[in-house]
Write a protein that binds this DNA or RNA. Structure first.
Lengths: 297, 297
DNA sequence: TAAAAATACTCCATAGGTATTTTAT
DNA sequence: ATAAAATACCTATGGAGTATTTTTA
């Protein structure tokens, strides 16, 4: 049984004429007659009564017409549905992200994605970076947003936001009035440091590296803090100073001022991460949108 | 979209391997790969993840697999159903018949038909011959059983039972003891005659013809009787004699004896009748069975 | 390196075209 | 006589085969 023949059959049945059906099908009449004849031969059933002024379906043809229509519609719908799934236009995607991602990186990505793929169900879950990696491996989330780099051979990463580190100072600090600050100026100050290792290796590493290049090693009054809000809160309380991503300024926390460094600013990168071997079309759609929203500030 | 490709796709998905699927499909691997590739191209969707030890369906492939199975099953069922309708194995058939048909002609036909076409719904309606013709024209019955001939260009007929006429005598009749009777012997007796014209032209005609050949014209004590039972009843009541189809002997009506004629017996024909242009497969099935049960007694 | 899929080519079956005949009103 | 379907024949697309290469675990 051939779909082409089924379509031809429906056309002939609907037009009640080989000639008209052939026109409608943009072909000539003889091959159409042939195809119908072969369909009848294959089924072992006469589908049309041929008269001198057209054609009429038999009882068996009546049944086939009904079923063929149903089948053709179903094939049409299936085609569309498969295409939409294949193009990542429908489905679901679960995304894990560190809280800071929602300051700057995530909003435009989500706006864009929801507009372009309105039929994808998005599940958003705020979580710690190490949990993102763990859940990614477990297949419980499809992608994550955290500070790069992430060294894992089974995980692929792509930067979506590169931003400079700025110095967070208590507003009571002597340097609070300056336009820019040289990092060396706070070499003796107590530092609030972000978590390292599996937690936020990227951020921690960049902070340490920046201090090292400025010629000192920071004196940690508090370390392994993983929430940026907490770091800023501690700075506001006068506990110490900190180097934080520039987007943190969006917090507008009272008691804290942010200063660009006068030297070349160290930068940190926030990126999307996903399983290397994952081939889901929805993920591909999301990654495309995410990459398209790369921002370098 | 091509059913062949759909079948190929299902095979590859189920075997999770082009090689094994090709074996199962009794073809070689390269054209199978080709067909799948073309299917993917046509849909614009990747259906398989190719690995070095086989193949795995993608999300879109998963959906297509489900739907393709459903579609293929539906096509299979449709094919069978259409074939059964086309072969007259399912459907309904309404049959009109004169009461005498149930004596001899109808029973074997019905037995046979019900055995060979158990899924055809049979509707049986006893009716007068003229009503059979009328209902046939009106499309209210599909076939009829009545005494031939029937002159009607739009109606086709086929004899299913040819039987001799026998002489019905009251058992008190002087000739009741004879083995056979010469028709001329009852030339002076009162006759009970069957209806003529549209009613039963065949039977009436044969009776008149037989008498004419025997050299007399029957004296009708009662005419236009259309039920054979009634004729026999009148004979039993001593009203007169009658020529009736031999199968009437099955009635075993008391008070009546049946005598074969010593001359060459006139015969009557009971036949199936149907609309000439009717092409229904169920009717064809019925006619085939009816013709196969032709009996010449 | 071994197993599986992809590529390159060749061949032929068949869908579709044109010209014509048949059929039924 | 006309209109529609059937038949005959031809061409060419594309499905399937064989041989071979590429890929990845």
């Amino acid at each position: 049984m051939d779909l082409r023949r089924l379509r031809y059959f429906v056309a002939v049945a609907e037009e009640a004429s080989f000639n008209r059906a052939a026109q409608k099908l943009h072909m000539s009449q003889p091959p159409l007659s042939n195809q119908i004849k072969q369909l009848e031969k294959e089924l072992g059933v006469v589908l049309f009564e041929r008269t001198s002024r057209g054609v009429r379906v038999t009882e068996a043809g009546e049944l086939l017409l009904e079923e063929a229509r149903r089948i053709l519609v179903q094939i049409d719908q299936t085609t569309r549905a498969v295409q939409r799934v294949g193009n990542g236009e429908v489905g679901r995607l679960t995304l894990g992200f560190v809280p800071s991602a929602s300051d700057e990186a995530l909003p435009p990505i989500l706006t864009d994605f929801r507009e372009r793929y309105p039929e994808v169900e998005l599940f958003l879950r705020e979580m710690r970076p190490n949990l993102i990696v763990q859940r990614l491996h477990a297949g419980q989330i499809d992608a994550g947003l955290l500070y790069l780099p992430l060294e894992d051979p089974t995980i692929e990463t792509e930067c979506v936001l590169r931003e400079p580190l700025v110095l967070a100072l208590p507003e009571t600090h002597p340097l609070a009035a300056e336009e820019k600050v040289e990092l060396r100026a706070v070499a003796r100050e107590p530092f609030v440091l972000p978590a390292r290792y599996a937690m936020m290796p990227g951020l921690h590493g960049q902070v340490m590296e920046a201090c090292r290049e400025a010629g000192f090693s920071p004196d940690a009054v508090q370390k392994d803090v993983w929430l940026m809000q907490t770091i800023v809160g501690l700075v506001a309380g006068g506990i110490g100073v900190a180097l934080v991503p520039a987007s943190l300024r969006n917090l507008r926390r009272r008691g804290v001022v942010y200063k660009f460094l006068s030297e070349l600013s160290p930068t940190v990168e926030l990126g999307v991460v996903w399983r290397k071997e994952e081939r889901s079309a929805v993920l591909a759609s999301f990654l495309e949108v995410a990459k398209h929203n790369f921002k370098n500030t």
